[in-house]
């Protein structure tokens, strides 16, 4: 698609193109600078952090030493945090996607009493800020005896009204009702129809919801901060933030390299997911909002 009234052969087109590309390069520099900075910093010794320029390598290449420091600090708690993040995010992602998909399937392919009202309530919940719920959630999981256990973070996170909304629009489009009726005539049970016919057709949408929920829970901070307290239950975001806040005080200088290198390690999984599954990711984020 060319811009109105200009063709790629005209001089003004080439001038505009170069100017716009230059502008985009500026924005890309802005986008990449912090990431480049943290990558470079993770290769520096603590002394180099203070004495060498932030956007270039230091005098020594200390990445391996830093990694060893990160993973050894405080009885190797960092690997526990990483593992926690992985387990929590995977459980939440798969759980939330299954719950959302089942619910969305009911909303999309069945008629039942109260359907419109329930769907309206679920849709309205998309607008509820999670933070308004954190204090009562904390008291609730405390009274249930779940506080400071993984479930206190996992169970509430599995409720994803946005996932339901996303899956419903996906199922509406990708699973034809005629196919379900045909399977019924053939005598297939409702659950068999779901698993062996409908679910296969909605698999791409399902993967998107898994991916989005994985990233959201990996990146979540407020809820785990509140409901998890003992060090060995924390996800990596909360743990690393704790180290960072320690480092802010006096005598915390040794923590600089550790936190910077820890930051690199903790974003690697999400960035890898991002690069390899960008199609699902972008698709999921845009489905909901473009249609509205």
């Amino acid at each position: 698609m060319a811009i109105v009234g200009k063709t790629s052969s005209s001089r003004s087109f080439r001038v505009s193109r170069n100017m716009l590309t230059a502008l985009m390069v500026l924005f890309i520099l802005y986008s990449f600078a912090p990431i480049v900075y943290v990558l470079l910093s993770s290769t520096k010794s603590n002394a180099d952090l203070f004495t060498t320029f932030g956007f270039w390598f230091g005098n020594s290449f200390a990445l391996w030493d830093n990694l060893q420091l990160v993973f050894a600090y405080q009885n190797a708690i960092f690997s526990t945090w990483l593992w926690n993040s992985f387990v929590y995010s995977t459980t939440i992602a798969v759980g939330a996607a299954l719950l959302s998909t089942w619910a969305a399937y009911a909303f999309s392919k069945y008629e039942f009493r109260g359907k419109k009202a329930i769907f309206a309530v679920v849709l309205g919940a998309v607008m509820i800020p999670q933070t308004a719920l954190v204090v009562p959630l904390f008291l609730l999981v405390t009274s249930m005896g779940l506080v400071n256990t993984p479930w206190a973070f996992i169970l509430p996170s599995m409720v994803s009204p946005f996932g339901v909304y996303l899956m419903k629009s996906y199922i509406d489009e990708s699973v034809p009702s005629e196919l379900i009726d045909a399977a019924r005539v053939d005598g297939a049970s409702e659950f068999r129809i779901f698993w062996s016919i409908a679910f296969r057709l909605m698999a791409p949408g399902f993967s998107t919801v898994v991916l989005l929920n994985f990233v959201w829970s990996w990146n979540n901070y407020f809820l785990p901060l509140v409901v998890l307290s003992s060090s060995n239950t924390l996800p990596v975001t909360v743990g690393l933030a704790q180290w960072y806040k320690l480092g802010g005080g006096a005598g915390g200088a040794i923590l600089y390299s550790i936190v910077l290198t820890g930051a690199v390690v903790s974003i690697v999984p999400v960035v890898i997911l991002f690069l390899f599954m960008q199609r699902y990711w972008l698709g999921g984020l845009t489905t909901g909002s473009v249609k509205a």
Binding site: W218, N219, V238, A241, S266
Partner: peptide
């Protein structure tokens, strides 16, 4: 606008920070 060199690269590159957790972004 379709007037850009390397459009796919820019789209991906500008979106990349979204993959960084808020907490990590704040501390960087």
């Amino acid at each position: 606008s379709g007037m850009l060199w390397a459009r796919a690269f820019f789209r991906l590159g500008l979106f990349l920070p979204y993959a960084v957790p808020t907490v990590i972004a704040a501390l960087i």
